[in-house]
Design a protein around this nucleic acid. Structure first.
Lengths: 129, 129
DNA sequence: GTTATAATGATAATAGTTATCAATAAGAAT
DNA sequence: ATTCTTATTGATAACTATTATCATTATAAC
């Protein structure tokens, strides 16, 4: 269900999020969008990011380095590297098992599961040795 | 290692956090602390909460309902109930297995793991039926 | 092409947190 | 116990991130 009008600004913002592979912040997005359409307003970026979140097309990631956005809505975790700052995607084939196990143990219903690891990414770990 | 001076304000704030069982926000804390010492300033609460975080005596929890603090620093997850808003503690005896498995699969080093579930808590689930 | 109104860009307003600074008080030295 | 040093405090200003306002523009239905 696509609510609202399909403006060229909204299209552009979604395009840019999909191109950005490294979990951009709002200002990353704004910067990138400005390069293509210099007349776009900051508020428009905020508004459309919120719409895309509501529509379930993107996800919010909260890290130590601030709020970031992810266009990959498949279930996965993140690792924030304390050396280089990058946010790695971590896929776990036992993702569903974790929530199901907790649902049973605690008699709760789980709709969403957010996992953020902090540590050292594979690349930085290699250089350390 | 206890750096800095042990002021009565700092002692009071830590006491209040430990008494508050339900993951208080900063304003919850400020409100509660004011009842005991009405002369305390808001900045002092912010400052001391940050110090306690640095010292590893409390943890920050980021939820949809804002930033909350937890005096239980043992490894555990949280569930935010979308009905009543409460933050449940979820303990998992396989906590360490999750991080170890991911460390091996991705060749990374994990120092910290934050898990937030969203769903319906046990109490709200009972009422729903 | 008209028309209704959702969305935009610019900017003001708000919320949450940190920085500033003179006054105070903790804790060491005497 | 008194003095001294300086970290901490309370009050408030400043700052940052985000949302609200509003006249104007542009989408999409007619």
């Amino acid at each position: 269900m696509e609510l609202g009008r399909n403006t060229k600004q909204k299209q552009l913002i979604l395009e840019v999020i999909k191109k950005e592979k490294n979990h951009p912040t709002i200002s990353d997005l704004y910067e990138e969008v400005l390069k293509i359409d210099p007349s776009i307003g900051q508020a428009t970026v905020y508004r459309n990011v919120n719409k895309l979140l509501d529509e379930g097309k993107i996800k919010r990631i909260i890290t130590d380095s601030g709020i970031r956005y992810d266009c990959d809505c498949n279930n996965h975790y993140h690792l924030e590297c304390s050396k280089c700052g990058r946010i790695m995607d971590i896929y776990d084939d036992k993702y569903m098992k974790l929530t199901r196990r907790m649902e049973e143990e605690y008699s709760v219903k789980i709709d969403d599961c957010t996992v953020l690891f902090k540590g050292i990414c594979d690349k930085c770990l290699k250089y350390e040795k």
